[in-house]
């Protein structure tokens, strides 16, 4: 296995695009190293991108929070300005693994691994986040949702990799939330996840995105459910309907982490709770 550690983005593009064999990008390494160890991947080349300064960027540029591919989860959850603006995204990032994992794992890595159960993704999708991609042909921007093809797969060509996540600035009177369900209090993969991003006007919900994780091959927009809560104040009957609707919208599989029946039930519960929490947060900033 070849090991590369370029120091500039141009070098990285050059090395990565010219290497024809199987290859992996190493940022935090918390997924890649496990896959190496368990023989899930046997890349001929690994490219460590942590030496590239620009990939450590974490700041606001042109109306977007720009998070570099080498920024660790703990850097994100330590940024108070970011947390207060996007508490839900921060919640998702903060749930990726233990303290030790947090110090290494990256949000771009979580996205690139494209696990249906990734904790980082639902809130990003609910926030309409985008990614910046580089390759031989230059760079391009794509939204996170359409970037994901399916479990473990992104719509990227062989020479391309992600350099940054771009999260639009949060609108006024708006807030997000991410909740997941696991059987323990820590250290598990989400059995169900739910990200919600909403705005309020006169105490009613004026816009909402509800995104379910781990209940389909990729995250699911619960648009019908989001429509249902529009103009509401989350009264009991609305909440109950929303819960049932999200149970229906979820398309989970049964596996070692949960049955179809269980995941549907919990998807409804989490959607309800995440929505209530995001709503309370939005009212607070209104």
């Amino acid at each position: 296995m070849k090991y590369e550690a370029p120091e500039t983005i141009d070098q990285a593009i050059d090395i990565y695009s010219k290497f024809n064999g199987s290859k992996k990008i190493l940022a935090g390494g918390t997924d890649v190293l496990v896959q190496l160890r368990t023989d899930i991947v046997r890349p001929e080349m690994v490219m460590n991108i942590k030496k590239i300064n620009s990939l450590h960027e974490f700041c606001i540029v042109d109306g977007y929070w720009k998070i570099g591919a080498a920024v660790s989860a703990s850097k994100i959850t330590k940024n108070t300005a970011f947390i207060s603006e996007w508490p839900g995204i921060a919640e998702g990032v903060g749930l990726i693994g233990s303290t030790q994992i947090q110090n290494r794992a990256t949000l771009v890595g979580n996205l690139s691994n494209a696990s249906p159960a990734a904790d980082g993704i639902p809130a990003l999708v609910a926030a309409n986040a985008k990614v910046e991609i580089v390759g031989q042909q230059g760079s391009r921007v794509k939204d996170v949702y359409s970037l994901i093809e399916g479990p473990g797969k992104l719509h990227l060509s062989k020479d391309e990799f992600i350099t940054h996540i771009l999260i639009p600035l949060q609108r006024d009177r708006s807030a997000d939330c991410y909740l997941r369900f696991i059987p323990r209090t820590e250290m598990d993969i989400a059995v169900v996840g739910c990200g919600v991003n909403l705005s309020v006007k006169n105490q009613s919900i004026s816009s909402a995105k509800i995104v379910l994780g781990a209940v389909g091959p990729k995250v699911i927009f619960a648009d019908e459910a989001a429509e249902l809560v529009l103009n509401s104040r989350l009264d009991k009957d609305v909440i109950l309907k929303l819960q049932r609707m999200c149970e229906e919208i979820a398309t989970p599989i049964s596996d070692k982490r949960g049955s179809i029946r269980f995941r549907r039930q919990v998807a409804g519960v989490l959607a309800k709770r995440a929505l209530q929490k995001a709503y309370a947060r939005a009212l607070e900033v209104s």
């Binding site: 059987p183 323990r184 209090t185 820590e186 250290m187 598990d188 993969i189 070692k256 982490r257």
Partner: peptide, 12 residues
């Protein structure tokens, strides 16, 4: 593995 064979962690 310890990921899905879930022994109690400190916070449990």
């Amino acid at each position: 593995g310890f990921l899905d064979y879930r022994i109690p962690v400190a916070s449990d």
